[in-house]
Design a binder for these strands. Sequence first.
DNA 1: CCTTGTGTTCTCCG
DNA 2: CCGGAGAACACAAG
Length: 274
Amino acid sequence: MGKNIKQVEVLAAKSVWPIPKKFVNLLTGQSLVAIDRIGKLLIFSLSDKKNYLLVHLKMTGQLIYAINHKLVAGGHSLSAQSLIGYVGGELPNRSTRVYLIFSDKSHLFFNDQRRFGYLKIVDQASLAVIKAKYGIEPLTPNFTKSNFFLAIKGRTKNIKALLLDQSLISGLGNIYADEALFAAGIRPARRASSLSKAEIERLYGVIEGLIRRAIKARGTTFNNYLDAQGNKGGFVVKLAVYGRSKELCLKCQGPIKKIKVAGRGTHFCPNCQK
DNA sequence: CCTTGTGTTCTCCG
DNA sequence: CCGGAGAACACAAG
């Protein structure tokens, strides 16, 4: 934080907004003064006190901070997860889409194998519009039981789609939606409007603990992901249903099923989840 | 063919 | 015809 951005290299035009020439002009000479987050969106405040650098990692995005091209920090430990991991080697590499060079010669690389993620520069007004689209978020003061009920009330879509809808509840992705529904004993395809008061309370009750444990375990990862301390993500070993199709349920020993709900791979226990 | 998060587009309903 | 909800599609690449 606070280091002057001497140079900005855009290797993939479509990974940035606005167009690379403007993007580079807006960023060069500035510094990143603070980092914030809403849902799965990272928000860096810029030193001009006017603009913000938004970073969305989507599925495979990573921010890698390097000094002398020696990796000192990698990936992210927020609610999203990385399907690829940084395993060392040359930077920039074939997955590098953008990188910043700071005045002290350190580098910040944005790597993104599948190019879904992006870096975007917006002003305060645009940021406010974007922030307004996010619903209540676990671990924040707004995530109260009554707000949770309000978010579900009157919704006819299935409960899994609702959990994934960032405008209602922000921060949950496909893995944690499945895990939360398992922990609460609710079938993913159930219409939200069919949930009893007790079921909604159970669901509310499990979400914060789930997110807390995930953060504590440094996120969910599948490969050789390294965090800022060089540790691997660990939550993957504690997943109860996600990725465990045909394996045995940890509660009842029955087989975990995999179906498609809301267009996404969905894992659940037909016996434990009603 | 599958995988994901989210923006866009389409369709339905009142 | 309008607005909202929700579903479907698009995107990228391994």
